[in-house]
Amino acid sequence: MADWIFSIVDRLGAPGVGFLIFLENVVPPIPSELILPLAGFRARVGTLDLWWVWPAATAGSVLGALVLYAVGALLGYERVYALSGKRWFILSSQRDLERGRSLMESHGGKIVLLGRCVPLIRSIVSIPAGLARMPLWRFTALTAIGSGVWNAVFIGLGWYLGENWDQVEGAMGPASYVVLALVLVGVAWLVVRRLRARNGYVGTHRAP
């Protein structure tokens, strides 16, 4: 993947950085922690224009986030809520969805803004925002601000570290794995709790 990222950046320049960051938002395993410091280093040595790299990366972030926001909006809260009432739907209960919607209504702005600065979460936070139908202008503005800060920090680190720019990805890699592990644990907990509740319901109704 690293060689592919290098080839895109070197071939397409700032638009290539924007394209890769767009993909990173839609397909989280593509690491912005590698793309952005590389772009900063390339800007330092003069092969990229710094004043085009940051806007291109931020535009890619916003466009990628809007794709996942649209997925959430098209699914719709009512449809997912109805699905969560089915016995075979094991990812969450209707009560979980109600709590999630309440949380987004109360603190959705903070969640979207801060979530843009957390690996993996920066991508998937767009879907619940779409489900909750957060106003599009607000979602776009918060995404642009949060992503702009994230992009500026990592491009700046690549510029500052120079030939050692790849140390950024090495330092952030463990943090990304921790976040991924926490997400997987959370999903597993929801599934187990949902299965236990369903089995308890079935057992109760089968009792004589």
Results as ranks from 00 to 15, higher is better:
Met1Gln: 13
Met1Pro: 13
Trp4Val: 10
Ile5Glu: 07
Ser7Leu: 02
Asp10Cys: 01
Gly13Cys: 03
Gly13Val: 08
Pro15Lys: 10
Gly18Pro: 02
Phe19Ser: 09
Phe19Lys: 04
Glu24Phe: 07
Val26Ala: 10
Val27Ser: 08
Val27Phe: 14
Val27Ala: 14
Glu33Met: 00
Leu34Ala: 05
Ile35Pro: 03
Pro37Cys: 04
Ala39Gln: 09
Phe41Arg: 04
Arg44Gln: 13
Thr47Val: 11
Thr47Arg: 12
Leu50Trp: 15
Ala56Met: 15
Ala59Lys: 12
Gly60Arg: 12
Leu63Ile: 15
Val67Asn: 04
Tyr69Val: 02
Ala70Met: 11
Val71Arg: 03
Ala73Ile: 02
Tyr77Val: 01
Glu78Arg: 12
Arg79Asp: 11
Tyr81Trp: 14
Ser84Lys: 11
Arg87Tyr: 11
Arg95Trp: 03
Asp96Ala: 08
Glu98Pro: 01
Arg101Gly: 01
Ser102Gln: 15
Met104Pro: 02
Gly108Cys: 01
Leu113Pro: 05
Gly115Asn: 05
Arg116Ile: 01
Leu120Met: 14
Ile121Tyr: 09
Ser123Cys: 07
Ile124Val: 14
Gly130Cys: 06
Leu131Glu: 02
Leu131Ser: 03
Arg133Gly: 00
Met134Asp: 00
Pro135Asn: 07
Leu136Arg: 13
Trp137Met: 05
Leu142Cys: 04
Leu142Phe: 05
Gly148His: 03
Gly148Trp: 00
Val149Ala: 08
Val149Gln: 09
Ala152Ile: 09
Val153Ala: 03
Val153Ile: 10
Phe154His: 06
Leu157Ala: 09
Leu157Trp: 07
Trp159Asn: 09
Trp159Ala: 09
Leu161Cys: 08
Leu161Glu: 12
Leu161Trp: 13
Gly162Tyr: 15
Glu163Arg: 14
Gln167Val: 06
Gly173His: 04
Tyr177Pro: 01
Tyr177Val: 05
Val178His: 06
Val179Glu: 14
Val179Ile: 11
Val179Asn: 15
Leu182His: 09
Leu182Ile: 09
Leu182Asn: 10
Leu184Asn: 10
Leu184Trp: 06
Val185Thr: 14
Gly186Val: 14
Ala188Val: 00
Leu190Val: 03
Val191Asn: 01
Val191Cys: 04
Val192Pro: 07
Arg193Met: 08
Arg193Tyr: 06
Arg194Phe: 08
Arg194Gly: 10
Tyr201Trp: 15
Gly203Asn: 12
Thr204Asn: 11
His205Ile: 10
His205Glu: 13
Arg206Phe: 13
Pro208Ser: 11
